[in-house]
Amino acid sequence: MSEVRDDRQYTETHEWILDNGDGTYTMGISDHAQALLGDMVYVELPSEGDEASAEDEFCVVESVKAASGVYAPTDLEVLETNEVLDDEPELVNSSCYDDGWLVKFKSDGIDGLMDAKTYAETLD
């Protein structure tokens, strides 16, 4: 079974979002998503300061099997990206909720996310 962490929220497109409590958020892809995609070989990240509108594809994770877009959950501005993934994209597989995070961003708030329990139910 895939792991779903209680401390964060989820999108229908299998991204997780962690509210850092100061108007900033950290984002990655869920355990379910990384398992579906398989071995990651390349992660294309935005640049610091980039802005994205809700539902924009603003990152791409590529596994041996397929490329998959990562979508902005709201209007946002990118604060920081996980540059370690440039050399170690496999962290998205081995540690999707910790070392394999993708971006930190700021936004005015996010609507319509699922809590962990609701997200877990969608995976059944």
């Binding site: 398989g38 071995d39 070989v41 041996v64 099997k65 597989n93």
Partner: peptide
């Protein structure tokens, strides 16, 4: 079987 864990 596509893989048994890691294709790589």
């Amino acid at each position: 079987p596509l893989n048994y864990g890691s294709q790589i």
